[in-house]
């Protein structure tokens, strides 16, 4: 492997950036040109973190094009699915089975259902040629600390990259806190020794819901916001009323849907719009439409 594009994805607090920095250091130590770019500005804890890492004789672009990732390392199940389209067809993908429901997926106050996707490994395996699934949290726990899960994942990654094991261990030792070196070495070694594809098969068939009571979102009925822009007068009431900041005023001072996925269907925007410019459609509406059809049938005239 003369060059490589690796995408590491996870959520805030998982050590994604540290893992990426270690790999970058290793590549540098091995004489490669390296570019590493992170997107984690608004992640805080629980938010999305991605790190693009590219190495080779000479690397120009700091970012990896969609569909050009040589190895995708997903620290979290939901993020694995989110970034799957970035992976080059047939390329290997490492998936940690940890599930961390982000705050944004907890906010369907109406149904109290989370938007977190169910774990369905078989479906994922059909889309990924070389799927390497592990339970990094468990490995790290056995190694001495769940915080070392990122080292375990580096262990899983190591055989896929053209770097000598001694360099991996040197870099690892120099980046992790001194008190945790031994734990991280153990975690790395455990990850590195996992047999694939046997390990993936061991987890195969896993279709579970996340432990904290959430189950899969009903994707058949996502709330859909209808904005009648010509009626909107840009009063800003809906923007300020929306608890999940779905709406914003655009340059023309008309309301625009900027975070449609964040909509919980609470209808505050619709109820408080003085100009009838927003309608929230969802599954319940279909039921209501049926009622309305009956309702209109009872009228003397249409």
């Amino acid at each position: 492997m003369e060059q490589g594009s690796i995408l590491l994805v996870g959520v805030g607090g998982q050590g994604v950036v540290l893992a990426s920095a270690i790999v970058a250091d290793i590549a540098l130590r091995c004489g490669f040109d390296v570019k590493q770019s992170e997107v984690h500005g608004m992640s805080q804890r629980g938010g999305v973190v991605t790190s693009h890492l590219r190495f080779g004789g000479q690397v120009h672009s700091p970012l990896i094009e969609r569909g050009q990732v040589d190895v995708l390392v997903a620290f979290e199940w939901n993020e694995a699915l989110r970034w799957l389209p970035q992976l080059r067809p047939g390329a290997p993908m490492i998936v940690n089975l940890q599930r961390q429901v982000p705050p944004g997926a907890c906010r369907d106050r109406k149904s109290w259902r989370s938007g977190y996707p169910a774990v369905a490994l078989d479906a994922l395996a059909r889309q990924v040629g070389d799927l390497r699934v592990c339970d990094a949290l468990a490995i790290a726990g056995q190694a001495g600390s769940p915080k070392a899960a990122n080292s375990a994942l580096l262990g899983v990654l190591a055989p896929l990259l053209p770097f000598p094991e001694s360099v991996w261990l040197d870099a690892l030792r120099s980046h992790v806190p001194p008190a945790t070196v031994t734990i991280n070495e153990r975690a790395f070694a455990a990850g590195r020794s996992l047999p694939f594809p046997e390990e993936t098969r061991r987890h195969a068939g896993a279709t579970r819901f996340s432990a904290n009571g959430f189950h899969g979102r009903d994707e058949s009925a996502p709330p859909r916001l209808e904005v009648i822009a010509v009626w909107c007068k840009g009063c800003d009431i809906c923007v300020r009323a929306c608890p999940t900041h779905v709406l914003a005023l655009n340059a023309a001072d008309k309301v625009a849907v900027v975070r449609p996925d964040a909509c919980t269907g609470c209808r505050l925007c619709e109820l408080l719009c003085p100009d009838f410019a927003i309608v929230v459609h969802d599954a319940e509406e279909r039921a209501a439409d049926l009622t309305a059809a009956n309702h209109s049938g009872s009228e003397a005239r249409g």
Binding site: K233, C235, P274, D275
Partner: peptide, 14 residues
């Protein structure tokens, strides 16, 4: 007849 003539932010439409 829509939109109505009331000002932006007028509560009457609500």
């Amino acid at each position: 007849m829509m939109p109505h003539i009331l000002c932006p932010g007028c509560g009457h439409g609500i």
